[in-house]
């Protein structure tokens, strides 16, 4: 049994289901990955479709893998002769007792073919699917970077500037447009953070340390 601990680029770029919402609020939600260890990367844009057809967008803000039962802590399984994926071969039950979760911060929605860069009016229902966004959909959503302000206000385990920087890198790599979008986006970030130079430097250094 080969356990993939890397995100499959096929899944994240082709609009396939990534997981299911297990805790939801207007500001965002927790989703459980369909496949252990396979989760969208930090900063990735994901979407869920509500019963009325509205599509809620969010950005991956955190990920974690742990015991399905919170009262059972993970323990060390390996040694010099048994490491990494071989541990999962030796303990096949781990596939069933562990789970991978990711947190998504709401940043916008699409209604009647119009993309809005503001917090969606309704949370994604519990147990609804979370999908990867196809490149064209990503391009459409990020065309206007008005959602950056919401991202910078995000509170979570990952600092907002790190999350924003991860998002900028992720979009730049996906669009593969000779950094045209990235250049425009960083100008917008600089404008938003003109009164907070220290945090702006963190974002810019993280996007392009050179």
């Amino acid at each position: 049994m080969a356990v993939s601990v890397a995100v499959s680029s096929d899944r994240i770029h082709t609009g396939l289901r990534l997981g299911e919402v297990i805790e939801t609020t207007t500001a965002g939600y927790w989703a459980e990955s369909d496949v252990l260890h396979q989760l969208p990367p930090l900063g990735a844009l994901v979407a869920s479709t509500l019963p009325d057809g509205r599509r809620n967008y969010g950005i991956v803000a955190f990920g974690q893998t742990g015991g399905l039962d919170p009262s059972r802590r993970a323990i060390k399984r390996g040694n010099d002769d048994l490491t990494d994926n071989a541990i999962y071969d030796r303990h096949p039950e781990l596939q069933h007792v562990l789970r991978t979760l990711f947190r998504v911060a709401s940043v916008g929605f699409k209604e009647h073919s119009r993309v809005r860069h503001s917090i969606p009016p309704l949370p994604v229902p519990l147990h609804y699917s979370v999908h990867a966004c196809a490149p064209a959909e990503v391009a459409e959503f990020v065309m206007s970077p008005r959602y950056f302000a919401a991202l910078l206000r995000h509170h979570g385990d990952i600092a907002a500037e790190d999350m924003l920087a991860a998002h900028l890198r992720w979009v730049d790599e996906l669009l593969n447009d000779n950094h045209v979008w990235l250049a425009d986006a960083t100008r917008r970030v600089a404008s938003l953070m003109k009164r907070d130079y220290d945090r702006l430097v963190i974002v810019l250094d993280s996007v392009d340390p050179d």
Binding site: M1, D89, R90, P92, E93, L94, Q95, H96
Partner: peptide
Amino acid sequence: TVYLKYGAGSTAEI
């Protein structure tokens, strides 16, 4: 019911 298979093609069913 738990089924665990070890070795080549190791797998688990719970």
